[in-house]
Design a protein around this nucleic acid. Structure first.
Lengths: 80, 80
DNA sequence: GTGTGACTTAAAGTCCGTT
DNA sequence: TAACGGACTTTAAGTCACA
């Protein structure tokens, strides 16, 4: 399982869990709307600097975005 | 704490735990010898494709490289 | 609200060296 | 063995128009 694929999946799941559109997340993370779309389609290999920004907006630690099995507290949105 | 900094630290710790030089790890992960050095000095924002390759050679899951507190089994080299 | 192609420019990543 | 620089190539970053 590549990290591109894991990330794509987790972005979709976490975004849905928070009721955010690609556009809403993009705005919050200060990136283009089509960029989030590209990541969810595994278009390229994101850098950890971008991951940090996106993770922050989703309220999770950066490494969580690369976990195959998301911890329940990530889904619920708890930042503990 | 940025992921660059966390990664730099973890690379040094895991490399030492396995007795690998920067060059040996670079060769195994099929990246340039100067690149591992650069990552440990936080010069670049690594992409997740490279992280996957490096993690594989260190015997850990990719996300572990971005954890502030490495799990003990990562240090011991267990791939469980 | 999302997928996609075309495009430009910033940065990742390589390869040569020296200290 | 590792830090570091310079020149180079490849790819991510970022934006747009349109479906």
């Amino acid at each position: 399982m590549s990290s591109r694929k894991t990330l794509a999946h987790n972005l979709r799941v976490l975004r849905a869990a928070r009721g955010l559109s690609q556009e809403a997340l993009a705005d919050a993370a200060k990136v283009d709307r089509t960029y989030i779309s590209a990541l969810e389609r595994q278009k390229y290999s994101v850098t950890i600097d971008r991951l940090d920004e996106i993770a922050k907006e989703l309220g999770v630690e950066t490494y969580v975005l690369l976990m195959k099995d998301l911890p329940p507290e990530a889904l619920s949105g708890d930042r503990a």
